[in-house]
Design a protein around this nucleic acid. Structure first.
Length: 577
RNA sequence: CGGAGCGUAGCUCAGCUUGGAUAGAGUGCCGCGUUCGGGACGCGGAGGUCGCAGGUUCAAAUCCUGUCGCUCCGACCA
């Protein structure tokens, strides 16, 4: 394609809202333009890259036995109500009421619709297993869009849903998807790690997350140095305390702590450390009130709590509920005497292991000291569960090995869903014995735009993008330096035509612009291979070929240029895999 | 939703504290000329209801109130 005919609005300056490299460069290189918060128009370069990514995904999904379909973005809210996910998603689910008064959701994912399809069409075990996938726009009314295309309100996702009669059959497809994902990311030329993940709102029993390690990622991955264990922060398990602590503490003592509700404030007031505090959090698990005890310097892990509560929908209790349950204002909840007032009390092992601690007194403006787990509140009772419900932190171990933390961008995740959706949406089939059984499901997502953004996040330098050839908008850029020189222009055109004929994705910079401008733009856009045709080179019978990652161009005789370019393109493609 | 901040030329920003004349710069854009291998230079030009609505004032980009939008930090994330 001809640069002079395309809208490739490169800029020297960046909009002030772009903070991370991928966002800055996508804008500067003219791949995208923002329309509103969290929504973007993809211009020719951006769309070409997305298409290449989608094609790779499509090929690997097809090869893995999935079949492509297309489901609606506008979905009946009723289906979401039936699975309970309209509540789980909350305001993140974008909804509208149509002119007939019907509720509709804009799809952030499509378990409901796909399961609905299964319920209508799948009747017999003989039809299974099946795996449906689609590539399309998803909508989430994000509480806070950010990082450009990485966390937007609208994005492109490949989502797939598989149906099975047995867990073993699901395992086979799950593994096939897992392997397909590895091939997708390898072909896209981006580095990735696979970690164990929690299935979260999806509701399921097993999951792996594919993450591109990089500084600006929003996900935290946790692993041991030997790589034997790797999980995301939501999932990462931590060892319980090694040594049981000395329990020889004094009697419980109430202290007046006026208007100091937060951990920091209490510590400042009493001169204690967060590690000595017992943090008491009131939550609602479905409609039941539960409390969670974690050490003051730890954070509650909602995913772990969800699992502990048997998959219940977890949300923080509102202030009125907290007051009613504890009899005190926010910030003064404590464990003593609470066990009878709540459905369940979850105690983190690191609280159980405390010698004694400071907690709220369930009395506004008061805390209590010398609270001993097991003595002053039960750690063993019918409705008390001691279980890991906090985020892993620096210094934690797992299996005795130190846990290390890194950030990453989630680009894909695979889930075993079980029968949650099929039961709620009546997706049952007859098995071999004639019994009606709910389909066992898996689901598998890939963030298409995130692959592009993360590729730039890990591939850039001061001059611009450095994209793998597999997903770059063009494979080769021919730069015609002196466009008013007939010989330069015609030779550049000849190379351009020959490359096109050879099936190469080639861009020719045929603009009437100064050389510096063309060089800068070529670097910024990040086309993997640049071919310069200029008077200086032609005087020696050469054109210049430079990979985006090379320091200097190499002169190649004009008559060998196309052949050499094709060779390097082949090498680059092989190298990316 | 809580905290902070910002809305002035297409973009990046000055001006606002301490109200005052035709609202500025860089970059980008248009025209002419000179240039032509790493974002050239000269001359000329277009481009602004200073987010919007009220208010204070002889006078508002500037002060006050409201409102809308955006951004950053935090709060259950593909």
């Amino acid at each position: 394609m001809r640069y002079s005919k395309l809208l490739i609005p490169t800029t020297r300056e960046v909009p002030s809202d772009a903070e991370i490299p991928s966002h800055r460069l996508l804008v500067r290189a003219g791949y995208i333009r923002k329309v509103a918060s969290g929504t973007y128009t993809y211009l020719v370069l951006g769309l070409r890259s997305l298409r290449k990514i989608m094609q790779i995904v499509r090929e690997e999904m097809d090869a893995a036995g999935a079949q492509e379909i297309l489901m609606p973005v506008v979905q009946p809210l009723e289906l979401w109500d039936r699975t309970g996910r309209s509540a789980d998603y909350g305001e993140t689910l974008a909804t509208f009421t149509d002119r007939h008064g019907r509720g509709n959701a804009l799809s952030p994912t499509a378990e409901e619709v796909c399961t609905f399809l299964a319920s209508q069409e799948l009747k017999s075990y003989k039809q299974l297993p099946v795996n449906f996938y689609q590539i399309g726009t998803k909508v989430r009314d994000e509480f806070r869009p950010r990082f450009g295309v990485l966390r937007s309100r609208e994005f492109i996702m490949k989502d797939a849903y598989s149906f099975h009669t047995t867990p073993e059959c699901l395992d086979v497809t799950y593994r096939a998807m897992y392997d397909a994902y590895c091939r997708v990311f390898e072909r896209c030329g981006i580095p990735y790690v696979i970690v164990e993940a929690e299935s979260g709102e999806m509701g399921g029993s097993g999951s792996h997350q594919f993450t591109v390690p990089c500084e600006n990622g929003e996900d935290v991955i946790v692993h041991t140095a030997d790589g034997e264990y790797a999980a995301n922060l939501e999932k990462a398990e931590v060892d319980p305390p090694l040594e049981p602590f000395d329990r020889g503490a004094a009697e419980v003592e109430e202290v007046h702590t006026p208007e100091v509700g937060s951990i920091e404030a209490v510590c400042g007031f009493l001169g204690t450390q967060p590690v000595e505090m017992i943090k008491t959090l009131v939550y609602k698990a479905d409609e039941k009130i539960v409390i969670c005890l974690i050490r003051g310097d730890h954070e509650l892990n909602v995913e772990k709590l969800t699992q502990a509560a048997g998959g219940a929908h977890i949300e923080p209790a509102d202030e009125a509920t907290v007051r009613e349950v504890t009899g005190a204002g926010i910030g003064f909840a404590g464990p003593i005497g609470m066990v009878d007032k709540v459905a369940t009390m979850y105690v983190d092992p690191w609280v159980e292991g405390m010698c004694c601690g400071v907690s709220g007194a369930n009395k506004t403006d008061y805390h209590v000291k010398n609270v001993v787990p097991g003595r002053d509140f039960p750690t063993e009772a019918d409705n008390v569960t001691v279980i890991d419900i906090r985020n892993a932190v620096e210094g934690d171990t797992r299996g005795g090995k130190e846990l290390l933390f890194h950030r990453g961008i989630e680009v894909g995740q695979v889930f075993k869903l079980g029968a949650k959706y099929s039961k709620k949406l009546d997706a049952y089939v007859d098995d071999e014995s004639g019994a009606s059984v709910p389909c066992i499901m898996g689901c598998y997502g890939i963030g298409i735009n995130r692959i592009l953004a993360s590729a730039i996040e890990v591939g850039n330098d001061k001059d611009g993008c450095i994209l793998p050839i597999a997903i770059a908008p063009f494979e080769v850029e021919v730069v015609a330096l002196n466009t008013d020189s007939e010989s330069v222009f015609s030779k550049a055109e000849q190379i351009y035509n020959d490359l096109q004929a050879a099936g190469v994705d080639v861009l020719i910079d045929d603009r009437q612009a100064r050389p510096g401008v063309k060089f800068k733009d070529a670097d910024l856009i990040g086309v993997p291979l640049r071919v310069v045709v200029g008077e200086r080179g032609l005087a020696e019978g050469n054109v210049e070929i430079k990979r985006r990652t090379d320091d200097k161009p190499a002169g190649v005789p004009l008559d060998q240029a196309v052949e050499r370019i094709l060779e390097i393109v082949r090498e680059l493609k092989a190298g990316d895999k």
